[in-house]
């Protein structure tokens, strides 16, 4: 059974549809990342699922129980959905222990063993229980917020950009701890983010929200390798776009004759490659295409190299840092794996 099933969900603010027919099906135990640019409606979607605001149309069902439908709005306190807001939002007047036990029935709020267990679940020592929220670092606050959300044992936990306020080093560490805690608790989770790398690395599945609709929902590998359209390809990572001509499952373009992912009708197409698919090779290699390096942006572990091909087309390649060429150098390129073809 689906932990969360959303159908035709619409929410308007002042006549503008922020959500315009969202369809989403989250299987039990999955961690689904909702990826979207700012203004795509991802936070609104989350607030509707929590029950903070009523929907204008469509339905939301939790574990098969309808909680939002025309004429039905189960209020937030009765939904039992865990919620971790941006920057944690710990109750500043309560200790860590009182924050974690906030949603528990009165008698269990003093159960130290249970609080210690919850803290351990999110990777914090039980000694943190007595501390005040303001004495914790951002990442620790975020973990306490997750422990608080998990305490009443919700079937579904919603996380709203939980790592955006943390600096880079802390972010990776907190991300790992949060993912581990969610899996250990066996909760289904929905994580809202605008960070592609975060969505791809954390989610069992990623749903991309665009103009108030789910434009594509897929596992991270499929989303990255086979985006539904050119705009989606650019949104989830850097894309090299080249015009080409498809014949019998292969396409001719400025980089030579490329294999295509999936069946494609013969005719003109737009081809999409990821920069890391383009390698620098020796001139002697079969099918190598020549070009001149125009610009190199060196990142250390790798470098982004822009190459002008013989026909004037410009492609970007991601090469290992140790093999980074210099601007003006003549190089030879070859393509690994298949290209994705879109209608031109």
């Amino acid at each position: 059974m689906s932990a969360l099933r959303i159908e035709g969900l619409v929410k308007r603010f002042g006549g503008r549809a922020v959500l315009d027919g969202v369809v989403l099906d989250v299987p039990e135990g999955a961690l689904v990342a909702i990826l979207g640019a700012s203004g795509s409606g991802k936070t609104t979607l989350l607030r509707l699922v929590c029950g903070f605001e009523p929907a204008d149309a469509g339905t939301i069902a939790l574990d098969g129980r309808l909680v939002s439908a025309p004429g039905l709005h189960v209020p937030a306190p009765a939904r039992g959905v865990g919620y971790v807001p941006q920057e944690g939002a710990l109750f500043p007047h309560l200790s860590v222990a009182a924050n974690v036990s906030f949603g528990l029935p009165r008698r269990q709020r003093r159960d130290r063993a249970r609080i210690g267990e919850l803290l351990r679940l999110v990777g914090l020592p039980p000694a943190f229980a007595a501390r005040a929220p303001h004495s914790l670092s951002g990442g620790e606050q975020q973990r306490v917020a997750l422990a608080r959300a998990l305490a009443p044992g919700p079937r579904l936990v919603l996380l709203d950009e939980p790592f955006s306020a943390l600096d880079a080093g802390l972010r990776a560490e907190t991300r790992g701890a949060v993912a581990a805690a969610l899996r250990a608790a066996g909760a289904t989770a929905l994580l809202v983010t605008h960070d592609q790398a975060e969505a791809l690395s954390l989610g069992d599945a990623v749903a991309v929200l665009r103009e108030g609709r789910v434009a594509q929902m897929a596992d991270p590998v499929t989303l990255y390798r086979r985006p539904v359209d050119a705009a989606m390809a650019r949104f989830v990572g850097e894309a090299v776009m080249l015009p080409g001509m498809a014949t019998a499952g292969r396409a001719a373009c400025a980089l030579g004759l490329l294999a295509l992912a999936g069946p494609v009708a013969d005719g003109p197409v737009t081809l999409m490659l990821r920069p890391e698919q383009i390698r620098l090779v020796a001139e002697t290699e079969a099918d190598a295409v020549g070009g001149v390096v125009r610009e190199v942006v060196f990142h250390g572990h790798d470098a982004r190299v822009e190459v002008v091909l013989g026909g004037g087309a410009v492609v970007a390649a991601l090469v290992p840092g140790h093999a980074s060429p210099s601007p003006g150098e003549a190089v030879w390129l070859a393509v690994r794996a298949a290209a994705v073809a879109y209608a031109p």
Partner: peptide, 23 residues
Amino acid sequence: VQRALEDVARSLGQGGWALAWRV
């Protein structure tokens, strides 16, 4: 009182008087 705090309390099952009294 940050709005997010009220939201969190409601998501933890505390509405109405409990929300007023505890948060």
